[in-house]
Write a protein that binds this DNA or RNA. Structure first.
Length: 524
DNA sequence: TATGATT
């Protein structure tokens, strides 16, 4: 292995000689020949600590930047990452070593943001692209600088190549291997990396990373493959998208934290004010991005402040004026927190729910009709001597009107026995997915039109709903007619099962049961 | 159309 050796005394002790470094460091051995294998080297996990923190929108960081004045760089210049440099070498010391390959546009030693400590690496941009290639070929892994145990790293900075050619692939089936994924993506370009994500047990998580050699290739794979097919056993069509950037990953982690602790103000959740401010900004930014670009992942209640929701709620749908309630449909809309029922829907139900031992939740009747009167006036068979329950009320309300629930912003009226969902509750619904064991319901045979909010409204009478989720088909954006509701306690979940399992809506009956535990389907 | 995801 070729090495650098120091042939002079330390130049820091000789300040009268400004730049002796290129004479003090000399090549020994045959290492000056170009490397045949320029890529895939040591991990360098420290290099992003600088750029994952928020930066001012204009201007550059005040880490030591030493552009050669008057030197313009090529449009296609390559920013190099330099690793494994001794911590006592500063820009001025490194410059001579790299200058031999061309004019330097910018050379920056990476310093710890807070301590200012030299991190043993640097970024280097030559004015000419060609210089960068020469430097990489000559130096990368070819010499070891004095005091270092590993050879110097000279290669394009990850910021140069990463990010826009690495794809995240979701909704694979768990049997698909790296090779299967490779075959799938092969037609769209040169694949540099293909990894199936696996858990600790080695089982596939049903997703993968595929890195193409160019952005264009990656883009063409997205166009061709995203949503193009559904793998056997996968719950939705194939997902092909650019992998998260560091920033997105940070956001994701924060969202998870927020969900986990049930805290909605990052300034309270996180200990350091800089982090809190950052978290806050990131999340706001993320919310804005999502609302603007693919609002489908967000409910209106996420995208708009509560006051705005209330305004939206005042609008009518289907050209019908608000508050034209009939006893049945009015109750339905009341029950679901909707406000403008259609006028002509009175289809009686044929099959009634099985209600066992559920104590009805007190609820008021805004139209002046008590629930029991509504019920019998509709010609329904009586199935028990119990007083009417929340489920009964809902049963009446649902009949024949579910087609009106689709696009409506929920949370605009007070549901039975409940107060209006607070903003925190609405946000939490997106963040906090599962409740404790025994609190999570799986609901099948939902009306096609039901979204997360309608589902939540339907189950609010039985307790505090911490989340509700209707499964959507990614390709068609249609409900798959099943979903989850989580309560904060098992008794509410049981009450909801008792009342709502078998509950008829239109021609279908709801199936409401405890969600299968995660490991239930595992063999052995 | 059958159990919330996955970086």
């Amino acid at each position: 292995m070729a090495r650098f050796t120091q042939t002079e005394t330390r130049r820091q002790q000789q300040p009268q000689q400004p730049h002796p470094a290129h004479t003090s460091l000399v090549f020994t051995g045959p290492g000056a020949t170009p490397s045949q294998q320029p890529l895939l080297l040591i991990p360098h996990q420290h290099q992003y600590s600088q750029i994952t923190f928020p930066k001012p929108m204009n201007g550059s960081e005040s880490i030591s930047i030493h552009p050669e004045s008057g030197n313009m760089k090529d449009q296609d210049a390559i920013k190099l990452f330099i690793g494994q440099i001794p911590r006592n070498l500063e820009e001025k010391d490194l410059k001579p070593l790299f200058e031999q390959f061309g004019k330097i546009h910018e050379l920056t030693v990476l310093k710890d943001r807070y301590t200012g400590m030299h991190k043993g690496c640097a970024f280097l941009t030559y004015c000419a692209r060609e210089s960068a290639i020469k430097a990489q070929n000559a130096l990368h892994e070819q010499k070891t600088l004095p005091g270092m145990t590993r050879p110097i790293q000279v290669k394009p900075a990850d910021s140069e190549s990463r990010g826009d050619r690495k794809l995240f692939v979701g909704m694979l089936n768990k049997q698909q291997t790296e090779e299967d994924v490779y075959r799938l993506f092969e037609p769209y370009g040169v694949i540099e990396e293909c990894t199936v994500l696996r858990g600790p047990d080695g089982n596939s998580k049903g997703c993968a990373f595929v890195k193409f050699s160019t952005h264009a290739e990656a883009q063409s794979a997205i166009s061709a493959l995203h949503g193009s097919q559904t793998m056997p056993g996968a719950s939705s069509s194939l997902v092909v998208k650019f992998a998260d950037t560091d920033k997105e990953r940070t956001i994701r982690r924060m969202q998870q934290m927020v969900g986990q602790f049930g805290i909605f103000n990052p300034a309270i959740a996180l200990p350091f004010s800089t982090y809190s401010t950052y978290a806050h900004a990131l999340m706001q930014q993320q919310a804005a991005i999502m609302a603007a670009s693919h609002g489908g992942y967000l409910t209106p209640s996420m995208a708009f402040p509560t006051t705005q929701l209330h305004q939206m709620g005042a609008l009518s749908i289907n050209g019908l004026p608000p508050n034209s309630m009939t006893p049945v449909s009015g109750e339905f809309h009341q029950a679901l927190g909707l406000s403008s029922p259609p006028a002509n829907i009175t289809t009686p139900s044929i099959v009634t729910p099985i209600v066992n031992g559920f104590t009805g939740i007190p609820h008021h009747q805004p139209n002046g009709h008590p629930a029991v009167e509504t019920m019998y006036s509709n010609g329904l068979p009586s199935y028990s001597t119990q007083s009417p329950t929340a489920a009964d009320t809902l049963q009446q309300a649902f009949t024949g009107v579910q087609q009106y629930t689709a696009i409506y912003p929920a949370g605009t009226l007070t549901p039975i026995g409940q107060t209006l969902p607070q903003p925190s509750q609405v946000i939490q619904q997106q963040q906090q997915r599962e409740g404790p064991e025994g609190c999570n319901l799986f609901i099948y045979h939902l009306p096609q039109e039901f979204g997360d909010n309608e589902l939540m409204q339907m189950f609010l009478p039985f307790g505090s709903v911490i989340s509700s989720k209707v499964f959507m088909d990614r390709a068609t954006n249609q409900s798959k007619c099943f979903g989850f509701v989580s309560f904060d306690n098992p008794a509410s979940a049981q009450a909801a099962i008792q009342a709502m399992n078998g509950f008829q809506i239109g021609m279908k009956r709801l199936k409401v049961q405890l969600k299968r535990p995660k490991d239930a389907s595992r063999p052995y």
